[in-house]
Design a protein around this nucleic acid. Sequence first.
DNA 1: TAATATTTGCAACATTGTTGCATTTGAAAT
DNA 2: ATTTCAAATGCAACAATGTTGCAAATATTA
Lengths: 132, 132
Amino acid sequence: MEPVKVLHEHNLKRTGCREGIIEVITRAGQPLSENEIRNRLSGNFDRTTFYRSFKTLQEYNILHKIVVDNQLVKYALGKSDTKTNSHAHFYCTSCNGLKCLDPVPVDLSGMPEGYVVEETEIIIKGLCSQCH
Amino acid sequence: MEPVKVLHEHNLKRTGCREGIIEVITRAGQPLSENEIRNRLSGNFDRTTFYRSFKTLQEYNILHKIVVDNQLVKYALGKSDTKTNSHAHFYCTSCNGLKCLDPVPVDLSGMPEGYVVEETEIIIKGLCSQCH
DNA sequence: TAATATTTGCAACATTGTTGCATTTGAAAT
DNA sequence: ATTTCAAATGCAACAATGTTGCAAATATTA
């Protein structure tokens, strides 16, 4: 969907930074890091503005954050989801690319007594089809 | 096992920082952050030394790093493992405690064509038995 | 005890992220 | 079209986590 529409639907102001982020990630078709996004954007935004935009867009489930090995952070469109069916992410250790996968079933029958599960996060590492 | 023995077994020099890290995490019985470790240690070590010790101990599979939501980093004893049976971690969103779980089966039958899986990481979030 | 390869501490720097505050701006109301 | 004002921005400063280079200190081995 058009970035403008997405923002309007959520009653968010239309700003260059927000629009740009959505558009760039949409066009790339895969999660991108802050730098990857910045390099693809025409406008020049302060880092604070970026982070505030990321935060807002995450709060409205317009995008979600993925962290691999800490220090490698990328952002993807859509909301991340929960519980036993986790929205998983694939990380290619060769090209550093990320890919959102369909939910991967996780067997939580072995959880210890008294623990309540609210959400699961899965990072699957390996080689993507390009790098294999 | 005694910290000294662990180090000796891997032909690592016995230093206060390495010994202390192993001992403190062993005693705590759960993964600890850099600060939690520092506060429990008697000696006062430079942050660089800490990180180099963590690195070495990880290379020798004496401990492993766990990252939650990026920015929350903790260290645990033992090696983290791989593939379809992932050594999972439970994160309590109330007390911020971490717990290493038994391997949790992950169904990777839905992986796209041409992708090679080398390792999976799972963070399960929720409430621990104390906080429930 | 002496030799030496490792480890340490310090300084500097990198990345990711947040907060406070004054200024600017998008969009609704007039 | 202009006014209004809450929301967004830019800047400066700071925090957490982590790395690199280099000289000084130290653990083990001979």
